[in-house]
Structures are given as structure tokens and as C-alpha cells.
């Protein structure tokens, strides 16, 4: 479900569950975490999705099939760990969005340093609809986006396109079509990997210090999301979706 390839100083990670629009399963997030943690010596990391879309978020069918909430809990914790790992990864992380980055998929943007997207890509956090709180994403979003934008994105189930996401500061480089996303993300990744190491790595570390997301803030976000898991609202809404 995760492909990880090292090309010289570049670490390339691909979400690869294409037949399910790269929907996240707990073991997939474990694989993603392992790949990010194994990229410690890389000079840049590129994260993209295989198939037609970057990532559709959590596999809700798997969540609905587990009324105990265990699957949802594992996904929320795994997502939080992955985003945190991307941020503390010494090398800058370039993330490419083609098709869609929805819910948990969009949350991955919070850990990225540079986000490339297609103009027509769809991005957003429509999770309150299914009784899930996107609180887990909020500490990382607040560290990178305008607070007003974070607020309106997290409570609204509407998706925005890539062009609008660029205006909102969620995306930092736009390409015209989905087909160009991988190539552009790779080009940016290679360009960053070729820069002299000390300056670039020190810059990322300093930015992490200036825009700090502490362990306790990140835990607070995760706990808020976990507090609803297995509850009646979430269970009923998930069951209605797959019932």
C-alpha cells in the first residue's frame, strides 16, 4: 500500500492503493510512518499518490465494519503520527496533489513543506458530515495557514479546487493538469535535494522552531478527535453511509 524508493538524496513515497483511491487503512499509515522515518538521511522527500487521485481519506467502509471504533482510533492516531513525522523529518517534504486530497488525505498537507497541486484538484475536510472531528489536523494547519482559513475549512464540508487552495495558502505551486503533478513534485524535490545541505536543513529546523507545534498541542488535537470515536453520532452516520 506504500511504495518507498530512494533515488540518490531523494526519498520518494507513493500511496499505492489505487483501486480504493488510496483510502487509508491503519496498516497503510504504519507503512507511511515507517517510510517517512526511514527518510531521515534524505535531502528531500516527495510524497504522491498512485492512480487517479492523491488520497480519499480514511477507508470508511473499514471504519463502518468495526463498530468498536478501534479502526477509526488507529487511523486517527496513525494520521497524527505521520503528519508529525513529516514535520520533524529533517529533509523538506514536497507533496503532490492530483485528483483529490480529502479529509485524512488533506490532513497530510499539514506536515508538508511545499504542496504542489493541479488547478482542478479537490481539497477539503468534509468529515463532520460523518460525525468525525478534524481537530487532529488543526494544530498543524494553524502553524501554516491563516487562522481564519483553518476555521472555515475545518467546519465546512465543501471542497475547494487547487486554484482556490493556492489563494488560501494551502497550496504553494499550481500546475494545469493532474498529469503534471508527479513530474513537478519530483522536479521540486530534486531541486531541493541538490541544494547545499546545511543551509537548507537548518532553515527547516528553524522554521519548525518559529512555528512550533508541540507534542502536547498535537496530542490535544488527536484527543479531541478520539473523544468522539465509537460514539453514537459517529456510529449512526457511518452506518447510514454504508447501510
Amino acid at each position: 500500500m506504500i511504495q518507498h524508493e530512494t533515488q540518490g538524496d531523494l526519498s520518494v513515497i507513493t500511496l499505492d492503493r489505487a483501486q480504493k483511491r488510496n483510502a487509508m487503512l491503519p496498516e497503510m499509515l504504519e507503512g507511511l510512518l515507517a517510510a517517512i522515518e526511514a527518510s531521515g538521511d534524505a535531502r528531500a522527500v516527495v510524497l504522491v499518490g498512485a492512480g487517479k487521485t492523491f488520497c480519499a481519506g480514511f477507508d470508511l467502509k473499514a471504519c463502518a465494519a468495526d463498530p468498536s471504533g478501534e479502526t477509526m482510533r488507529a487511523l486517527l492516531s496513525g494520521l497524527s503520527s505521520c503528519v508529525r513525522a513529516m514535520r520533524v523529518c529533517p529533509a523538506p517534504v514536497v507533496l503532490g496533489v492530483h485528483g483529490a486530497a480529502v479529509a485524512g488525505g488533506c490532513a497530510l498537507l499539514g506536515g508538508a513543506d511545499v504542496v504542489v497541486a493541479a488547478r482542478d484538484a479537490k481539497l477539503g475536510y468534509p468529515v463532520v458530515k460523518i460525525g468525525v472531528s478534524p481537530a487532529v489536523s488543526s494544530p498543524f494547519m494553524l502553524a501554516s495557514m491563516t487562522p481564519g482559513v483553518v476555521r472555515s475549512r475545518l467546519v465546512d464540508t465543501e471542497l475547494v479546487d487547487g486554484a482556490r487552495a493556492f489563494e488560501l495558502g494551502m497550496v504553494h505551486a499550481l500546475v494545469d493538469t493532474a498529469d503534471e503533478v508527479h513530474a513537478h513534485a519530483m522536479e521540486l524535490g530534486r531541486s531541493i535535494a541538490q541544494k547545499p545541505g546545511v543551509g537548507c536543513l537548518t532553515t527547516k529546523r528553524w522554521l519548525n522552531e518559529i512555528c512550533e507545534v508541540t507534542d502536547s498541542t498535537s496530542q490535544q488535537g488527536l484527543d479531541a478527535s478520539l473523544s468522539l470515536t465509537g460514539g453514537e453520532e459517529e456510529r449512526a452516520r457511518l452506518a447510514a453511509l454504508w447501510g
Partner: peptide
Amino acid sequence: GGGVARAAMLRG
């Protein structure tokens, strides 16, 4: 803002 600044300074 942190995210746009991060991208601008790390891309060079």
C-alpha cells in the same frame, strides 16, 4: 503565514 513562508524559503 508559516506555510507559505516555509515553501518560499525552502524552495529558494
